[in-house]
Design a protein around this nucleic acid. Sequence first.
DNA 1: CGTCACATTGATGCCTCTCAAAGCTTGTGG
DNA 2: CCACAAGCTTTGAGAGGCATCAATGTGACG
Lengths: 178, 178
Amino acid sequence: MDRGTVVARRDDRADAIFFLEAGGIDLVRYTGSGDEIVIHRALPGETLCEAALFSSFYHCDVVATEITQLNSINKAAVLEQMRSDPDFALAVSERFAGQIQDGRRRLEILAIREARARVFAAIAEGFLRSDIKSLASLIGLSHEATYRALSSLAKSGRLIKTGRGQYRLPGQAADSGK
Amino acid sequence: MDRGTVVARRDDRADAIFFLEAGGIDLVRYTGSGDEIVIHRALPGETLCEAALFSSFYHCDVVATEITQLNSINKAAVLEQMRSDPDFALAVSERFAGQIQDGRRRLEILAIREARARVFAAIAEGFLRSDIKSLASLIGLSHEATYRALSSLAKSGRLIKTGRGQYRLPGQAADSGK
DNA sequence: CGTCACATTGATGCCTCTCAAAGCTTGTGG
DNA sequence: CCACAAGCTTTGAGAGGCATCAATGTGACG
């Protein structure tokens, strides 16, 4: 599917969970004032919306952030597998536990008041995956504040600017991937 | 145990998870600048630190917020039970899924920029359980900003002040409990 | 080569943080 | 039973930082 495709919306009936083969998916909600908050940003190889296993509705919008290959997995099948295969059930639980801790790391970052410190923490956690605007909405700052924090961090040597909209930690190998 | 007791600290080796019989427990982390962020606030009847089932260390400090009765549950025993009893494993997973969604609700609230709107959303989500300072640290505002937001919301009729440090939504029955 | 979205920087104002001080409640000890 | 201490509540004043609006630069893509 193309970038921008909405796979599912909040409060849609949930019969399936998803597996992200390739591309990128954001789970998104909207505040009353229209700001969008990215609840989770998935990487290829992840399963998505697992919480829907125990809920009849999705709790976020599911949106492709680039050209994406996404598979649906039937909820009932997963539940049945969990019932019959203890190791599978344990693996699912472990993945859930990881998601809880991811969320808590996000909370910790959002609790940082000073923009520079928040941006730095986010970079250190590896939150800068695509563009800066996207990072900004992930950490609850305006994109301008994010740009300024980045440029200030680079000026003080706490980050290294490797290109237009590209930063890395000092002492960290330049990212050759993409 | 008394209020203020630290049951476990971040990075302590984790051999047990907990069950809160009575009282209150906060899971807490600290930002680099010393601000404290409450990652989770547990109610009686909840299990705590379940994520430690799959991790060798605790990821937050565990602190009693009042006089509290807390039981330890051996990790190995829980894992064994999950392996032998599929329904138990499913129940654990379901609880995890609930925690993921709790965390996401918190993220949604922290992403609200305007203090009044954030406080209102927090009240609507039932986050005001004890005192206001405590609510403030839960939603990432200074306690002064929280007090002012509350008083402003009460003045505009969006909340009703029922006493010193006590507020409720209009149209909601006065809370007779305690 | 034109369009579009992201990147970047400037200017301004409001809002929240911070520091301060005083009133209220509760609990404790004498 | 009273006095004091401690902690929450509440309000004030000032400063700084982030949001917002605005404009320009720049790279990607058709």
